[in-house]
Structures are given as C-alpha cells and as structure tokens.
Simulated scan of single mutants.
Amino acid sequence: MKRPGPVLTLLAGLLLAAFMLSLNATTGVRNAASSGPRTPAAAPPSSAPPEGPTGSANPADPADPADRPVSRSPSPSVPPSAKPVPNADYAGRTDDDSSAVAVSLRDGRAIAYFCDGHDKESWLKGAVRADGTLRLTGKNGARLDGTLRDSGPIRGTVRLGGQRYPFTADKAVKPSGLYRATATVRGARVDGGWIVLPGGRQVGILDRDGEPSAAPVIDPRTGTVTVDGQELTAHPVTP
C-alpha cells in the first residue's frame, strides 16, 4: 500500500491557504468597521436656567407686571424762592416822607393801609406770591405794588389819586404795626386807621361819616383811644 505522498501534502497546503485567506478577510472587515467615523458624544446639559417667555434669564423676575415693585421718583425739593412768605407785619414811610404805609401778611394774603395823617387814605388787599411779590388793590383805583425779598423790608409804590408814592416798610415788632377801630359814636359812623411806626410815631386818619381828619393817639399797649368823649379799642389788623 502506497503512502499518500506529495498529493496529500499539497492538499493540506491548499486547505491551510484557504483557511488563512478566510481569516484575513474577516479581520479586514472588522478593522474597517472599527476605524469608521464615530458619533460625537452628547454635550453635557447646561447648568444655566432656561430663559423665560420674555427672554429674561432671571427666574426671579415676576411675569406679572402687577407683582413687580413700583419705582417711585423722589419728590422734587422746593426751591427757597417757592416757599410761602412768612407771616409778619411791616410799617414805614414814603420816600418823600409825606405819608405812612403798613402791610400785614398772613397765610399768603395781605392787607395794607396808606395814609398821610390828614385827608388821604386807602385800604388795600390782595394775595402775596411765593416770590414775595405783592399786587394789592383798593377803592377808586388805588393800587400797591411791592416786593419782599429775603425777609428784609418791603419796597414798593402806592398809586392813589393819580400820584405815585414810593415807600419802604421795615418789619414791625409789636406794638408797632397796623390798627383799626370802627364804631358808632354820637350817631356818627366812625372808622379809624392807625400806623404805629418803629420808634412809636403814629400816623392815622379818623373818618366820621365820610369826613376824614387826623386821628387821635391810641395807646399801642392796649389799643384804647378816646373819640368824642367815648372810649374805643383799636385792634391789630390782619388779612
């Protein structure tokens, strides 16, 4: 019996070669699959909070405008020139020294009295502006225009009977100031006005039923005055 010899050896070699080829093909496919493009890893979620419907990144911002705090603007400060004029009394004389003028200021209102101590007089009243400007009016077209600045004197002009009377009135401290008394004495209507100037000098007119004359002297401490034998009381005048 003959041994297989070279034929078997050749057959075994062919089988081995076929096996090796098959192994190499399988390995190549695996290597190609492993060397292909990789899917990128998903990015980690952001820690920042998502924006709200209005695009605001602040989650504490209330969505309802009614819940938001209201911003209030501070009240504007009032300039000194706009503050109310202080209550005070003023008395002085005209530049020609012919007459006297007294002014009383209370709560933005003013009353004034002009008289020459003989037969010219006028009661005037009106408002005081915050800047210290006075525009007072009286009977028969009488008018007083004046200005009070920085709590100093009142400087102004009285227009009466077609004439102008510039004046300066300084602040009056009691008993200086403006006084008035009205009464009926012996059947006559009596209306008296007095200006007590700083230093004690008095200027006044007493009107009896429309007839003016120089007024008798009053006691500024009590306001008492005697008219035709009857004692009256003159009171300080305020608006």
Rank of each mutant, 00 (worst) to 15 (best):
P4E: 11
G5D: 10
L10G: 07
L10F: 09
L15G: 10
L16R: 05
A17E: 01
M20L: 15
L21A: 15
N24L: 15
A25S: 08
T27W: 07
G28L: 15
R30Q: 13
A32K: 07
A33V: 14
A33H: 11
S34D: 08
S35L: 14
P37Y: 08
P40N: 01
P45Y: 07
P45R: 09
S46M: 10
P49N: 10
P50V: 09
E51T: 12
G55F: 08
S56V: 10
N58V: 09
P59N: 04
A60H: 12
R68L: 11
R68N: 02
P69F: 11
V70E: 05
S75I: 13
P76A: 10
V78I: 14
P80S: 13
S81V: 13
P86M: 00
A88L: 04
G92L: 03
R93Y: 02
R93M: 15
D95W: 12
A100M: 02
S104Q: 03
L105T: 07
R106S: 14
D107G: 08
R109S: 10
A110S: 04
I111V: 15
Y113R: 08
F114A: 05
E121G: 04
S122V: 06
L124R: 00
L124T: 02
V128H: 12
V128T: 13
A130E: 10
D131A: 07
G132M: 10
G132F: 00
L134I: 06
R135C: 02
R135L: 13
K139S: 14
G141D: 03
G141L: 06
A142E: 12
L144G: 11
L144A: 02
G146Y: 06
L148M: 03
R149H: 07
D150A: 10
D150K: 11
P153I: 03
I154R: 06
G156A: 05
R159I: 11
L160F: 15
G161S: 01
Q163S: 14
R164H: 12
D170Y: 02
K171E: 11
S176V: 06
Y179C: 05
T182V: 12
A183V: 01
V185M: 05
R186F: 10
G187K: 04
V190K: 02
V190W: 02
G192W: 01
G193C: 01
W194G: 01
L197R: 06
G199K: 04
R201V: 09
Q202M: 04
D209L: 10
D209N: 12
G210H: 01
A214I: 11
A215F: 00
R221K: 15
R221P: 04
T222G: 05
T224R: 15
D228Y: 06
P236C: 07
T238P: 00
